[in-house]
Design a protein around this nucleic acid. Structure first.
Lengths: 148, 148
DNA sequence: TCAGAAAGTTAGGTGCACCTAAATTAGTTG
DNA sequence: CAACTAATTTAGGTGCACCTAACTTTCTGA
């Protein structure tokens, strides 16, 4: 139930919302907190824009925000952020496996991640696992890429 | 040179531009022409929006447009549209191979396609080819998905 | 041929996600 | 504890990609 409700959320949230949540969770995990200024720097956007979005995410119930004070993800917000993060990681792992350059991976995943639905994600996940267990085919793929 | 210039174009063009070009080429291939009304119906947007974009694509040199008369892709526009179409097809084939449902494929490719860079596309292409030649691993992937 | 229908264009407006500049609040430290 | 600095918020904008309504042009058939 929690999974299905967060999936529904994920379907409705915009790419921008997903980027914010993902980054906020990451900041909380690494620094222990996520201030407006941190989020702004991390996403390379203005603090004013962050304030706006954070207020919106508060009204949407994804985080709790007190003006000038700070913010914390709600249960719903954290669940959603974790899904987004997992999806990001899965896509990154997949492309990494194929031998794509880190910078390209970063750029492409940043763009694609918001458009991958759960079924597609599951398929890529299953494929990634099989490729990891049986790397023979992967070797050929990388060779093909090196040659051309 | 033509390839690199169209790649540059592709990198600069917005998702909307890419969607228009892709659909225009498809209409030309199937009906022989692409009128404003056709494009609007196909993309499910208003004719007014199409007129606007078509005028923009004309100024950008991607197509030749005569008011009230009709449009034709320029060489640059057609090259770009072909790249976009190829990318779309490749992604569709890849997901199809993994056993993802057609409707999901349609939706996800529609979203992702604008964010896949040439290197990533090449990697997925090489992977798809290997999977087609050696379907053993693919069978396991599909089984995993069926089971869960 | 000419009137109505279909197609296309223009004008003006919306929401989103961003911005800068100018307040305002909070934190620091001499 | 006051003054400076850092952080945040508010106000007012921008560009993009869409919209509707109203107008113009083109096509079609009685």
């Amino acid at each position: 139930m929690s999974a299905s409700s967060s999936t529904r959320q994920l379907a409705r949230s915009s790419a921008a919302v997903e980027d914010y949540l993902e980054r906020i969770l990451e900041l909380i995990n690494t620094k222990g907190y996520a201030r407006v200024v941190d989020i702004a720097q991390s996403l390379k956007i203005s603090q004013a824009s962050v304030t706006n979005m954070v207020q919106r995410l508060d009204t949407e119930g994804l985080l709790k925000y007190e003006k000038y004070r700070g913010l914390a993800l709600t249960t719903a917000g954290e669940a959603l952020a974790r899904n987004i993060t997992r999806r990001h990681q899965l896509l990154t792992d997949f492309l990494k496996l194929l031998g794509v350059d880190d910078e390209v991976i970063y750029h492409d995943v940043e763009g694609m991640e918001h458009h991958i639905s759960p079924p597609t994600l599951r398929a890529i996940e299953a494929l990634t696992q099989q490729l990891q267990r049986h790397p023979a085919l992967l070797v050929k793929v990388r060779k093909d890429l090196d040659e051309n």
